[in-house]
């Protein structure tokens, strides 16, 4: 690994000030550190956010759950409040990586990285999340821009993610047998505004499948999507799964998620 200067920021302001085009924030490091070890990334500065107070924690208000950005996956998966309000979100967190990743990786880190096969972005889309940063609030639909790309600007730091508590929801993932990231993950949620079907792993960036969403908004049953053809165009194709297979899995897993709701 190439050397860098390590900083542990006291507060968001300091962290933001330290950042530059050649820095990265460290919120767990589950992707950042392996990428650096493999020589795929290098930075002059790594700015640790973990020691900033108030960035971690889970708060439930009437209609939403707000999760601080440095809250670890294990904390979300084991949280009684989350399990009660949005069980599918706790289950999603329980399925991220392995136990050691869950003990270290954070929700903010996952979302900021926006890996096309990560789990949390699908929860954000499905649960109409609002991403709170030190500068603004961003709706999930506008946050995830493309592969490993978000609306975050240099120096902008996620402080919390606020999820709508849905009427019902479920997340189903077919993991890559090697990496265990999602080959396809489908998060179905019936929210106030209608049903969302957020899909991760299938394309270069998480997305809300409008056809599936609107069919399920009209009739929330797995048979409601029987007639819908999922196009494989734009879907990822690699040694683990062809676009055609992913398209099939989107449908199969949407049905599975609906049935499990």
């Amino acid at each position: 690994m190439k050397t860098f200067n390590y900083h542990s920021a006291k507060d968001v302001k300091e962290a933001s000030k330290l950042s530059s085009s050649k820095s990265a924030f460290l919120a767990g490091g589950m992707t950042t550190l392996p990428s650096m070890k493999l020589g795929l990334a290098s930075y002059n500065d790594l700015i640790n956010l973990k020691n900033i107070k108030n960035l971690s924690g889970i708060k439930v208000s009437g209609k939403t759950i707000k999760i601080g950005s440095t809250t670890k996956h294990a904390e979300v998966s084991q949280s009684k409040e989350v399990k009660k309000a949005i069980p599918s979100l706790a289950a999603l967190a329980e399925g991220i990586g392995d136990p050691q990743v869950r003990n270290r990786g954070t929700i903010g880190g996952s979302i900021a990285n926006n890996d096309p096969a990560a789990d949390y972005p699908s929860a954000c889309i499905a649960l109409n999340a609002v991403i709170h940063t030190n500068e603004r609030k961003i709706e999930a639909e506008k946050f995830f821009k493309g592969m490993f790309e978000t609306a975050l600007k240099t120096g902008e730091i996620i402080e919390a993610v606020e999820f709508e508590i849905p009427k019902k929801s479920n997340y189903q993932k077919y993991p890559n047998p090697a990496s265990r990231y999602a080959i396809v993950g489908v998060y179905v949620a019936e929210c106030k505004s209608g049903v969302n079907v957020a899909v991760t792993g299938a394309k270069s960036c998480v997305y809300n499948d409008k056809n599936l969403s609107s069919a399920l908004s009209k009739n929330f049953s797995s048979s409601a999507i029987d007639g819908i053809e999922i196009s494989s165009s734009g879907m990822n194709s690699d040694i683990h799964a062809s676009a055609e297979y992913r398209a099939n899995m989107v449908k199969v897993f949407t049905k599975k998620a609906v049935e499990a709701c």
């Binding site: 490091g29 392996p34 070890k37 640790n48 973990k50 294990a74 050691q100 990743v101 270290r104």
Partner: peptide, 18 residues
């Protein structure tokens, strides 16, 4: 894997400084 403050983590993916 080692334990840090009682929890397991992968020591190859954690900075000592952290």
């Amino acid at each position: 894997v080692v334990h840090v403050d009682g929890k397991s983590l992968k020591s190859c993916t954690a900075l000592a400084a952290d």
